[in-house]
Design a protein around this nucleic acid. Structure first.
Lengths: 343, 343
DNA sequence: TTGTAAGCGTTATCAC
DNA sequence: GTGATAACGCTTACAA
């Protein structure tokens, strides 16, 4: 026995059974609390497992049970605070329900996203949580719907696909921003946009135009710029917008990364915020109040996004083919100095 | 339809073999490019796999091959930018080498860490990448060393355990900070510390005391405070330190979260930085230059930490039991206004 | 109450 | 070259 332990070989259920003097099936039943067992037998098995430091192979179990208790999580960029927080929120709920998380970073590319999905599917994950960078319905169906693996989208979805979608309240968020800046007296307002292939990017852009129209305000094409969710893009887009013949007096940013880029650009150009340019952004980062100037922002709970998506997914795994569900995460405006509000 | 799709049996290697009119072993060989095969057979199998949308079960393969191509990644808090970046760096290297990442958040608790390790081991991961919150050597050995699963620590390790450890150059980092503040003329310097159960927390504290002594400076006990890596802790610790009879004129923060807390506390107390209190911190966050005031910081590449750790792990998986290796990530001082440097 | 045997979907070792 | 056959470690009818 001692030699058994020392060898590199893993301890298996068979070892436990042998040590306890029972069959493998009995050992299995004892360890999983299934079926009727005599108390002594159960105790003997538990003891054997303990002595041998038995750790059941999740692999073998999954193969046999045809379920892995593993959820695939796909985001464009794990190092972004938003996705990291959503991940944490989802993980909390998922672990509670006995699931593990297999994480994949799509690297903000369509190929990366497909590859990530493929890997996860090969792993036979029980469900998928994905913030897509923008995939066509057909491709998604061919890849995952056909397999029957439940998928919940968050932050960015594929129209009509999936068992559910969790989105921020982009409409209300942008409207709050526009209204607030208009209330400050601004009429020339610009917009920094992220990727328009993603739901959040597109919804924010559309709502912006709608809100401006509703206020009877014009938006020259040059007042809208940006195509990626990066600080660099925010910087470049801001410079482009400010280079307009008659630049806007206020700027709305679709994300905090873009806003940081705007801050940087304004600093370089000597444009003072909020006097020369008012700034307000989507995403209330934890450091927003400590920036120079403190940033007016649309706040929400990023953990909540992950939690809700995870709950939806667990439901979908449970009840199979009920209606696709849609959850909207509420947002609220937090005013600070960057929009012109008093400190 | 949805239900039908859902219950549809997965397509297996046997299906592919049958469709191609060959045996399962031949199909396996064709798909994996192993052994000698006639070109036609190979083509037929590949075609069949394509037509049937065959996706090999990673589960079955792992069980048979006794290797999962999966790496377990354990951090105290995924939503922290540092860990998220390290994760991304590690993922890049790991994916390149054909590994997937199974992520677990220990939730900053010892129990959570043990549970995470257990789960990962049950999953038969090929290797472990962990930033421990501080585990005893014995416990670690009983849990993972006994199993023989290679483990590389990063940011925080277990003395003498594991196949390698990747740490930031905490010594140089803190020395740079102390020297710079001393050069500004400060003699009363305080320190904000994180968890002292973690390597980085402890090393930073120790180096601080050593550096101060080397400069012939005294550090009253009340000048050092903090016990967790959170903004809230930074806030509270700062208030405690500033409440000293003769408060320090400069403050070093062991992490950017702590520094944000300090900034917040100073704002509340009306303490002006850098005039009334100079501030400099470990960690150069991407928003550090845009804070009020811009933060002087010790910079390093967080992705690098993950990459190096991943490389070490891949080596360890390859050559088995060579010497434990140790990598130190270089750091550099970035001066900005918060320490008293000109803008 | 407990044991036997048949798989889950692969790959490796033999034969032919 | 290609095909049986036997594992890998587990769960679960079905027997006993």
């Amino acid at each position: 026995l001692r030699n058994r332990l020392r060898t590199a070989r893993e301890v298996t259920l068979a070892d436990v059974a042998e040590y306890a003097g029972v069959s493998a099936s009995t050992a299995s039943r004892a360890l999983n609390g299934r079926g009727e067992l005599s108390p002594e037998t159960r105790a003997a098995v538990l003891h054997a497992a303990d002595v041998l430091h038995f750790e059941p192979s999740h692999l073998a179990r999954s193969l046999r049970m045809r379920t892995t208790s593993t959820i695939g999580f796909v985001v464009p960029d794990v190092s972004s605070p938003f996705y990291a927080s959503a991940l944490k929120g989802a993980q909390r709920v998922l672990e509670q329900a006995g699931y593990r998380v297999l994480l994949m970073d799509s690297g903000q590319g369509a190929d990366g996203e497909v590859a990530a999905l493929r890997t996860l599917l090969a792993h036979r994950v029980d469900g998928l949580l994905v913030a897509t960078i923008g995939m066509e319905r057909e491709r998604f169906d061919a890849l995952v719907t056909r397999r029957g693996t439940p998928c919940v989208f968050f932050d960015s979805g594929v129209d009509g696909a999936g068992a559910g979608t969790v989105l921020l309240d982009n409409t209300v968020g942008i409207e709050l921003l526009v209204e607030h800046l208009v209330a400050h007296g601004h009429r020339r307002i610009g917009l920094l946009t992220g990727s328009l292939r993603e739901t959040s990017g597109l919804e924010r852009l559309r709502t912006f135009h709608a809100a401006m129209r509703r206020h009877g305000l014009e938006t020259p094409a040059v007042y809208v710029a940006g195509d990626r969710w990066t600080q660099e893009n925010g910087h470049d887009a801001t410079r482009r917008i400010l280079a307009a013949g008659e630049p806007p007096t206020a700027l709305i940013s679709s994300s905090v990364e873009l806003a940081l880029g705007a801050l940087q650009a304004c600093r370089e150009l000597g444009v003072r915020i909020p006097d020369a340019l008012a700034l307000a952004t989507f995403d209330d980062a934890y450091f927003a109040a400590l920036l120079d100037p403190p940033l007016t922002a649309v706040a929400y709970d990023p953990f909540d996004v992950g939690e809700q998506a995870a709950s939806l997914l667990i439901d979908a795994i449970g009840d199979g083919g009920s209606e696709p569900r849609r959850v909207t995460i509420p947002v609220a405006l937090v005013t600070r100095r960057s929009c012109g509000c008093a400190p």
